[in-house]
Nucleic acid binder design. Sequence first.
DNA 1: CTGAAAGCGCTTACAG
DNA 2: CTGAAAGCGCTTACAG
Lengths: 356, 356
Amino acid sequence: MERSFRCLPEMNKYTEVKKKGFSSRDVASMAGVSQATVSRVMNRPDCVKEETRIRVMQAMERLHYQPNLIARSLVMNSTRTIGLISGNLTNVFFVETTDSIENYVKGQGYKTIIYFEKEEVKLKDIVDSLISQKVDGILLSSIKLNDPIFEGIKRCGIPYVFFNRRPGEEGNYVVLDNELAGQMATSHLLNLGHERIAYISGKLDISTFHERKIGFEKAMRMAGKRILDGLVHFVNPDEGVIGEITGRLMSLQAPPTAILCATDALALSCMDTLMSHGLDVPGDVSLVGIDDTKLSSHQAIQLTSVGHHGFRMGQLAAGILIDLIESGCRPHQDRQIILPPKLVIRKTSGQIRLKK
Amino acid sequence: MERSFRCLPEMNKYTEVKKKGFSSRDVASMAGVSQATVSRVMNRPDCVKEETRIRVMQAMERLHYQPNLIARSLVMNSTRTIGLISGNLTNVFFVETTDSIENYVKGQGYKTIIYFEKEEVKLKDIVDSLISQKVDGILLSSIKLNDPIFEGIKRCGIPYVFFNRRPGEEGNYVVLDNELAGQMATSHLLNLGHERIAYISGKLDISTFHERKIGFEKAMRMAGKRILDGLVHFVNPDEGVIGEITGRLMSLQAPPTAILCATDALALSCMDTLMSHGLDVPGDVSLVGIDDTKLSSHQAIQLTSVGHHGFRMGQLAAGILIDLIESGCRPHQDRQIILPPKLVIRKTSGQIRLKK
DNA sequence: CTGAAAGCGCTTACAG
DNA sequence: CTGAAAGCGCTTACAG
């Protein structure tokens, strides 16, 4: 558009688009009643005389009338929508939570707007967008430790629940006891005789990874084992560098006899690389994940893992959120659930073997 | 609530809920301008005097103002939202499409409302809900052959694209050449010397399954092989009966030497059962899927499959939808893409072995 | 460059 | 039981 035109009345690109449907006013005039009555037929049918109600309903049918929920939301100040900001679906764990969350909230009569986190998109923008969209509540796994956005969420007063990750000790959340999970996974490997244990994790600005690492360190310390420098890696899981790291680990002079991955998703990538290098798991190296996703129990995978069903975590978080939404008042106490992890020993972890 | 009260003015449960935020009117009065000017600062900043604009923006900051998109949508008649009705995430294929769709439309400035199909929830209700919510377009994989809802979608005039499944020959869609895919998968097994081929599929009221079955039959016919009665099953994939079917197939007097599953998801379930029965794939029985999901290429799975990357299908469909939305006019020709399938031979299919 | 006014499609007190 | 009216928070033609 030319500069000189920029302040002319803008062409309304919607002008020529036909109306998207009929309004309650159209129904009203067809039925010979007021708009208020049409509204009542939808919301409080008991309060409308049967004869009138039938006439209105016939008009609705004839016009294929669909109420405009946007308009309703505006007056009701409620959208019956929750916003879900989730980790990417390339991580199986979030597949489980996304599925269970959508199903749960749908059952409660809510819709779900989803966002999958992405490097380029700032969390703040997503949250702002959700606030602007007037969602009734926000469910988010994508939060960093001490993320300043947490303040913004609290300030605006919109109900929220974190799941899987949390910004700190405060707030509403449902998480795994990650420290314990890390500890249990490590102890399992120690019990099998491993000492040279590699640890592959996501970045430590995320609570999950921060806490699991502490658990790992704690277990090693308690067993009196040293954590070996080149064996510990904190990477960005999205970048697909797991293959490279794994390759490097295994071509070390003294490669690890076991690898603990901070998530099942990482372990799966790791396993993929190990196997494509012709290595046997657990023959050549043991492998353990954390999260215990369903996929890990597949007979072809059989990944030893520690976790607490993801679908349950999603459902719990969604349940709390809806509770928060419907109770209306802002409770004075944060709602916090820390789930106990469970170790599930499968086929990827085995007794250490002596170097041939 | 007592019957006698039912027509009393309803307690407005929103009455006591504090406003969800500030409005442009609040900003206006703080900045000492009219609401119209605040609106202009957001939408056509060039048309506002710099001094005024700065004053308004400061007021916005101070109030942490977030525009109410609900109100804007109402006047603009556009929500910048698309509705996605997807198959369940328990099917890996839909994990890939969901992920790519959300990412693509987000990049185009649209939000995504998702629904995962579910036995209990009727498609019509979901579509109606989406129409009521005034989404700008609908993307759906969940459609049955000749589904009457297709008429409703066309009538209401909302842009739509089907992906993976289609209601028939008509409409906008992006699908795999399913018949060819079925044929290629079958031919592959025939070429390996298999004749006793089992076929496990979803119900035939879904185009994908209908067409893939035709491909299967065609390949068998062209090879002059008979399709054996007890070896063909059309089941509801959600019900987890795959295990049972697989078990029954393999305990037949003359079990199949190969199993073709109509989707990778089915093949994965099938493999799980086969392995848990101690059977070797492909030693005891070959296994082939259709969709070629990423998971199939994992070293621990290595499922032979035929397909066309799911993420591409999702992205193509989303691209067409947004094109349809933004072009505004209803094109006279349907937009249809039929993707060519590719056979990827991995480790689950092998030469037939003679019965010991 | 800016404001007053109308309108998007609903809902709900208020009267009758 | 029903209608007229006001209002939710925006946007935009129309005046000035």
